[in-house]
Nucleic acid binder design. Structure first.
Lengths: 280, 280
DNA sequence: ACTTTACTTTATACTAACTATAAGGTGTAT
DNA sequence: ATACACCTTATAGTTAGTATAAAGTAAAGT
């Protein structure tokens, strides 16, 4: 360790022992947060006193609690002890909020990875499978026309509406990517493509009114790599049911398995799973 | 809701339905992240297709997971599906680290508030009290000279060394503000001010080797609003012990109760509590 | 057709808390 | 005397936008 002259630390020494950069110290000087003890009028060299480390410590401590330099300057300049406590309390609430936000994001990333793996291991496009699917909870959102009467572009408008709805009702955006549409059992039985609802899958810990439960059971499914094909594939699924003499036992669901990164800007690029509950 | 021409959304409409600002869309255009579908050569007006909402969604989704715009541009441009999963995994670890950091800061703020309250309710400077104090854990750090032989300015140098030590050993900076110095029992019994160790109080959940346990017991204490007075007040405490015929039962501790915001840049401004365990 | 209003364009500057660089002056050791 | 480490200021870059100005355009009302 270099020998230090305790009352005349150069900017470099001050920076080194406090683990900040010289530029940072110059910035603090210019901002009036920490002025050097002494400045040589001729050369402009800054000289700090070792005692100023305490001040710098305080700055770093306040900074570590998420305060801005302006706030710090204000607090240090004012010196109101009671006020300082309030600032700390406020900081505490702020941190709480931030941690919650990050945790939500983390949940979203985790679910995204799961979806991704589901996509990678999913049967190829166009294949009809019979699967046992566990019970799920969904939140339905009504639209004022038949989804299948419209051009596929209208899908975007519906999504926008749903997003606004979620925003307005302060619902968590977490579930957003697990969206789908539903055809109620009577229409399925009539072989009629009629849907005026879209839905979101809901996590168990995400509580909300108006949640519907989709029971576990056997489903015939078909996977599909573009929502332009949905209509066609749904008809295939219904044909399969008729051909095999199955009985429809509930609502049809079109579930988005994965929304893929859109590489070309030409529209949604998704892998969807069309499913109808049946019994033999 | 205004009527929208699905294939020719102006920048304002596009901004509104996606809840971003027009400037943001212009920025994305300039950065090449999201180019409008069509630009009028004469007027320069940007026109977006409703299908581009999907692209914007993806951008916001990736952003919500903490990716920078540059990363997003790279990912969208490259279109590597497997790579995307890795990016998500990386993001997950990154978020974990950030959450941990925030929690640590939160702990620090909480302790700071407690210290503050302790300070506000503490007896005034110079008063000698007798207190029962609970058991505590400390981490000691040796220095190579007698603390009391030095000018008080050397305290700063010791703190710097301690900070470096903590940093080098990857210890949590959490405990930093609860620092103090210790005089071992034999020296106290000899009424000699000799200390070559400083210590940090350690939370229960902060595990580490070389932790010492300071037992619970009765202490005579004196509070002190400046470390310039420590020597003097320690002598007063020893006099008090002699005068009342008490027996010293352990090490002397000088504990920093609160490090106050340093309002003037003239040095540390702290409230300390000097304490010696005794029996009658 | 004319005006008003709402909307669009570009360019520039600002935010926060630094970091990086250039061009030039200073301190000290050999 | 000179090499080298260090210091100075000034300027620009970073991120992901926001704010503003000055000027051009579209649409609606009259």
């Amino acid at each position: 360790m270099e020998p230090l002259e305790i009352e005349k630390l150069t900017i470099g020494q001050m920076a080194r022992i406090n683990h900040v950069s010289e530029q940072t110290l110059r910035l603090y000087d210019r901002m009036g947060i920490l002025k050097p003890n002494d400045i040589n009028k001729q050369t402009g060299y800054r000289y700090y006193s070792i005692r100023q480390c305490a001040h710098l410590d305080m700055i770093q401590y306040m900074k570590s609690m998420g305060m801005s330099l302006d706030m710090i300057k204000e607090q240090l300049g004012k010196g109101d002890v009671i006020m300082f406590r309030e600032v700390l309390q406020h900081q505490l609430r702020h941190l709480d909020k931030k941690i919650k936000e990050l945790k939500q994001i983390q949940e979203a990333v985790k679910r995204s990875i799961i979806n991704y793996d589901r996509y990678l291991s999913a049967p190829p496009d166009g294949i009809i499978t019979t699967e046992f699917i566990h019970g799920r909870k969904i939140y339905c959102y009504s639209i004022d026309f038949n989804f299948y009467d419209q051009e596929i572009e209208v899908y975007e408008l519906i999504l926008q509406k749903l997003k606004s709805h979620i925003r307005l009702n302060n619902l968590s955006m977490n579930a957003y990517y697990n969206v789908g549409n539903i055809i109620r059992k009577p229409y399925v039985e009539e072989r009629k493509l009629y849907s005026d609802e879209i839905f979101l899958f809901i996590n168990d810990d995400f509580f909300l009114e108006d949640i519907e439960f989709i029971p576990a059971g056997l489903y015939v499914c078909i996977y599909c790599d573009s929502n332009y094909k949905e209509r066609d594939y749904t008809l295939r699924l219904l044909e399969y049911i008729d051909h095999n003499g199955l009985t429809v036992t509930g609502d049809y669901l079109c579930e988005v398995v994965a929304e893929l990164p859109v590489f070309k800007e030409s529209g949604r690029n998704m892998y969807i799973k069309l499913q109808i509950p049946v019994k033999y």
